[in-house]
Design a protein around this nucleic acid. Structure first.
Length: 643
DNA sequence: ATGCGTTACGTTTTT
DNA sequence: CGTAACGCAT
């Protein structure tokens, strides 16, 4: 099928799509057809005769990558789905499965998530005997400071300072040498145990490229055309990778919008996109400013807010295609309860009277707990919704524990997985678990029967566990998952029985257990199509959400961070009051944090196509107390307040 | 050393 | 209001 690019794209989009040689920066404001450009670009390259094998498309989530591949394939043909399209992390993971031996790492390494990292740090702290020192930062804090330092090329001290603030940093400053020692041990622990955290995927791939020019050249030759989505959110390490692959051939298209850089806390650097033209000589810059998404009223609001408050970046004034004669609304409800019921009623009105399908309605929130009241109402009224952001499926303890059964089966020396599993048994707490896990680290399964607490009452349980895991090895993957489900749920029942707590708590726990078992079924469904735990675990670690069934018409509740790239007929933005959204207040105007909040606000309002409701309760609950809700300083001077 | 009950304390966002 | 660190009794 022939595609008429000139007809289907506007002038700047056409330029963005057809500039295939050399570096190009595509500055695409919200709703200006960024994704469309990427999809057409893939099709264009392939139609021009470029082999799919030579195209690399890096996106922010693997979901986005798959969608773009699919759209290009639907438009042109199946060849489009043969391109390499994934996140930086998945790409590095794939490359390391091939090349990690070159830097002395086995290729069957395990990917660990920040929770596992924190567990490792705790174990190391215990070895050093500093697990009970007062004021010592929590292991999860050390993990994120360490990660931030690496991703931003900062010193550990600076990263900790940024994270904790001056006051708290002073309290922990004296621990810096200890922290550095722990982190050094942490690095060697991972190496010894054949593990990589998210940052290692990037860092180790960089060292492969650095130490092996032949590999670098080979990959540069394979991936002749590289495209990167959401470039404003790339960080120091990610840019480094791309620049290394682009030393010779410079066919690199980066797409993004500096106004939408909202991952600074994770090391994203707006400077990467802002300075891209300077860094890549001969770079062409294409501006996309024609907005196809929102009505002019919504565009006016976003233009005015950015003009008033934005401190840096390329100023872009976006133009809409149509006027709606409906203004965005600022809703001043009494409190958060009324905010929730206002949203609920409006949703029902939109759906029932204006016939807006649920999936065209979205509630956005700065933080994922803001919607608890609303969710209760939606459940009560049986309005179906999906929730994006916040706690993810694979972050839940029962899911992680479930996966630890698999991990122990695959690698019976996986200390971290043993540590988690052992704590499930009655009578085993942190200390016993740590020590027995350490034994398993060296002895594997035998560790369960050769540790130093062999006479304790939990020993029969451990022997049971041992034979259970041994049996797993002979089973088909699906059957294996079923066995784990029944083993683990029985374990949960027994633990509940042995507990001596109030009837209230007991009922609560029983309900949680039931939910857990339902989640296991979801997990088992997700594993359908995989025939081994190894590949399943890898995919899971890098894209942590179960795919939902498409049929039902469901509305969306999402954090703003997880709503990137999405659009809806009607959008509600919750809690537009200082300290909630933005999380900063008037006193912080001019700080980097405040500016990131502004960009976050920009992302939020530009998700709306037609209707936009900015919610601002007059009173908000804080730590159980009530506080006045002060209208977000980004909009207080823009809106006349409607009561 | 564990596990329960008490108090203090603090709020993001995620590959 | 909910969670996490702390202290006391097993």
């Amino acid at each position: 099928m022939e595609i008429d690019y000139r007809k289907e794209l506007n002038k700047s989009q056409y330029e963005a799509v057809t500039t295939t040689e050399g570096p190009v920066l595509i500055l695409a404001g919200a709703g200006t057809g960024k994704t469309r450009c990427m999809v057409y670009r893939v099709a264009y390259l392939i139609e021009k005769g470029v082999s799919p094998n030579n195209i690399l498309l890096l996106t922010f989530t693997n979901k986005a990558a798959n969608e773009m591949k699919q759209r290009a394939a639907d438009m042109l043909d199946e060849r489009c789905s043969q391109i390499t399209a994934c996140t930086y992390h998945s790409f590095c993971a794939k490359m390391l499965r091939k090349y990690s031996q070159l830097i002395g790492i086995q290729s069957d390494y395990t990917i660990i998530d920040p929770g596992d990292c924190a567990d490792i740090i705790s174990i190391i702290e215990a070895e050093h005997g500093i697990d009970k020192v007062k004021d010592f930062p929590r292991s999860s804090q050390l993990v994120s400071a360490h990660s931030k330092a690496l991703n931003t090329n900062q010193s550990l001290e600076d990263a900790l300072f940024d994270m904790l603030g001056k006051w708290k940093y002073m309290k922990i400053e004296r621990f810096i040498p200890d922290i550095k020692k722990i982190l050094a041990d942490y690095q060697s622990y991972k190496k010894q145990n054949n593990m990589m955290d998210y940052d290692d995927l990037l860092i180790n791939f960089i060292s492969v490229l650095k130490r092996n020019p032949s590999v670098k050249n080979k990959l540069a030759d394979i991936y002749q055309y590289i495209m990167i989505d959401e470039y404003q959110d790339s960080n120091y390490l990610q840019e480094k990778i791309i620049f290394m692959l682009r030393e010779k051939n410079r066919n690199l298209a980066v797409v993004g919008d500096d106004y939408q850089c909202i991952y600074g806390f994770r090391g994203s650097m707006v400077e990467n996109i802002i300075n891209f033209p300077q860094k890549m000589s001969g770079c062409k810059v294409v501006y996309l400013t024609q907005n196809y998404r929102s009505n002019q009223e919504i565009m006016d609001l976003s233009n005015i807010v950015m003009k008033k408050h934005s401190l840096e970046g390329f100023f872009k004034k976006l133009v809409a295609t149509h006027v709606a004669n409906i203004q965005p609304l600022l809703v001043r409800s009494e409190d958060e309860g009324e905010e929730a019921s206002y949203i609920l009623n409006k949703i029902m009105a939109l759906h029932d009277e204006e016939e807006i399908p649920y999936h065209e309605i979205c509630v956005l929130e700065r933080s994922s707990y803001h919607s608890v009241r609303l969710e209760a109402l939606l459940n009560k009224m049986k309005i179906p919704y999906d929730k994006y952001g916040g706690m993810k499926f694979f972050d839940y303890d029962h899911i992680k524990n479930f996966l630890c059964f698999l991990r122990c089966q695959i690698n019976s020396h996986d200390e971290i997985a043993w540590f988690r599993l052992l704590k499930l048994f009655d009578g085993i707490g942190n200390v016993y678990a740590r020590n027995i896990a350490a034994t398993c680290k060296t002895l594997g399964l035998e560790g369960l029967v050769q540790h130093k607490y062999i006479k304790r009452k939990f020993q029969p349980d451990l022997e049971n566990l041992k034979s259970f895991i041994e049996k797993l090895n002979d089973q088909d993957f699906q059957i294996e998952l079923q066995s784990i489900k029944s083993f683990y749920s029985r374990l949960m029942d027994i633990t509940l029985m042995l507990m001596k707590t109030s009837e209230k708590k007991r009922r609560e726990l029983a309900r949680a257990n039931k939910q857990a078992v339902r989640d296991f079924d979801t997990l088992i469904e997700m594993a359908d199509g995989y025939d081994s735990p190894v590949t399943f675990l890898e995919e899971i670690m890098l894209e942590a959400s179960p795919q939902k069934e498409e049929e039902e018409d469901r509305m969306v509740i999402s954090t703003i961070h997880s709503a990137k790239g999405l659009e809806f007929h009607s959008v509600f933005v919750m809690n537009c009051v200082d300290t909630m959204f933005p999380s900063t207040d008037k006193d912080q105007i001019g700080t980097v944090e405040d500016n990131e909040e502004l960009r976050c606000f920009y992302v939020a309002i530009t998700r709306a196509k037609e209707r936009l409701f900015l919610m601002a309760p007059k009173y908000i609950a804080k730590f159980g107390c009530v506080e006045e809700g002060i209208i977000s300083h980004f909009i207080s001077d823009v809106f006349q307040v409607k009561e």
